Amino acid sequence: MNATTTRGALLAALACVLVGGSFTANSVLGDYPYAGGQFLRYALAFLLLVPLAGPGATARLRALGAGRWLRLALLAAVGMVGFNLAVLAAERTAEPAVPGVFVGCAPVVVAVVVPLMDGRRPQRVVLYGALLVAVGAFTVQGWGRTDAAGIAFSVCALAGEVGFAVLAVPVLRPLGPRLLSATVCGVAAVESAAVGVLADGDAWLPRPDAVEAGALLWQAAVVTVVGFVCWYMGMQRIGAERATLFSGLIPVAAACSAPLVGTGEYGAAQAVGSALVCAGVAAGSGASLRLRRRTAGAVPPGHGTGAGGSKTSSRRQVALDPSSERR
């Protein structure tokens, strides 16, 4: 695995771990209006991201056509505002594990949808890794009580998670991770305000108390600013298919952090599920294959010292690890 791929994998993993660890912050916002909370989160994140957008940001935004602006609006509506609303709606009649299981299937959907959008076949290794990640996510969370409405909203949450990755692909290159994050946060803030006014009227934006303000600040500054930029930087390096594999780390991070705040336990099922997720990520991202190739291409001490021995081993290493040519 070369330096670019390694950095992309680490960035995607960090983003998903931050999201998984943020569930504690979500638990203290149950009484705060949904749309108002989303507005504060994304508006603050937008203000923090604007100085990081880089030079020429205005020119790059002006160069976007109407189609790409529509895509950005859909990305914010489906992958951010709609996703969070779907999860909250699902949890009204279903246990939290139910939407979590559906969202855990996002790597499988992305592994199929993205290649088809590019006019190519899905990669088997990525698809198999995604299936393993989905099974691991299910094992970590289990299954809970639900009804038809809970399942329907959970499917909507899955669509939102997929849309957050797929809709960003055509606009990631012209905007870059930081400007893309800032733009979708600004759009999501406007959409959240519109939803709040329509749904809650004058009560859509009450003053948060100290605990709620701390949770919103954490979501804006850490989960959104750091998490979004890391996610899109990772996706830029390794692609949407492999980056979405790391979303399996969201329930793993949530399960690991739950005992720290007394909201859950980490038992045998969580340990097995975490191992399955890690195995799926390693297989789908190609890390395990590269490791096997490097091991097979290693020359034991004392070998290859004969005439032409070093040249033979060098050619063999290049053949087994194509990335070595790029180094």
Rank of each mutant, 00 (worst) to 15 (best):
264 G>C: 08
309 G>N: 15
312 T>L: 14
42 Y>D: 02
208 P>G: 05
147 D>H: 11
66 A>W: 13
87 V>L: 11
284 G>A: 13
257 S>E: 08
212 E>L: 00
127 L>M: 09
223 V>A: 08
237 R>M: 07
23 F>Y: 14
234 G>H: 03
245 L>N: 03
181 S>C: 12
116 L>P: 08
109 V>I: 15
60 R>W: 02
286 G>R: 04
313 S>D: 15
26 N>T: 10
64 L>T: 11
181 S>F: 09
11 L>H: 08
115 P>G: 03
251 P>W: 11
314 S>H: 13
314 S>A: 14
257 S>P: 07
152 A>K: 09
270 Q>D: 11
208 P>C: 03
101 V>Q: 07
130 A>C: 11
96 P>L: 01
207 R>W: 03
189 A>C: 10
48 L>T: 01
145 R>Q: 14
166 V>I: 08
276 L>F: 12
303 H>M: 14
115 P>K: 15
15 A>E: 09
76 A>V: 13
194 A>P: 00
8 G>R: 03
64 L>S: 14
314 S>E: 14
125 V>K: 12
150 G>H: 05
261 V>T: 15
15 A>I: 04
4 T>L: 04
222 V>P: 03
137 A>G: 14
140 V>I: 15
179 L>Q: 10
74 L>H: 01
108 V>S: 08
276 L>P: 06
327 R>D: 14
82 G>R: 08
41 R>A: 02
215 A>M: 06
50 V>A: 06
59 A>D: 14
262 G>S: 02
186 G>Y: 05
165 A>N: 15
131 L>I: 09
231 W>H: 09
207 R>T: 12
46 F>K: 01
97 A>K: 01
266 Y>M: 14
155 V>M: 11
110 V>N: 10
91 E>L: 05
199 A>H: 13
253 A>F: 01
317 Q>I: 05
290 R>L: 09
5 T>F: 05
282 A>P: 10
265 E>H: 02
183 T>V: 07
109 V>D: 06
304 G>N: 06
86 A>P: 02
68 R>K: 13
10 L>V: 12
278 C>P: 00
194 A>I: 07
14 L>K: 00
96 P>E: 12
210 A>C: 06
104 G>T: 07
221 A>P: 06
10 L>N: 09
150 G>S: 11
228 F>A: 04
158 L>R: 06
166 V>W: 03
6 T>D: 00
265 E>P: 01
108 V>R: 12
139 T>L: 14
249 L>M: 15
267 G>E: 03
124 R>Y: 06
100 G>Q: 07
224 T>E: 02
298 A>P: 13
51 P>N: 09
321 D>N: 14
219 Q>R: 04
117 M>G: 02
155 V>G: 11
50 V>Y: 01
65 G>K: 06
151 I>E: 10
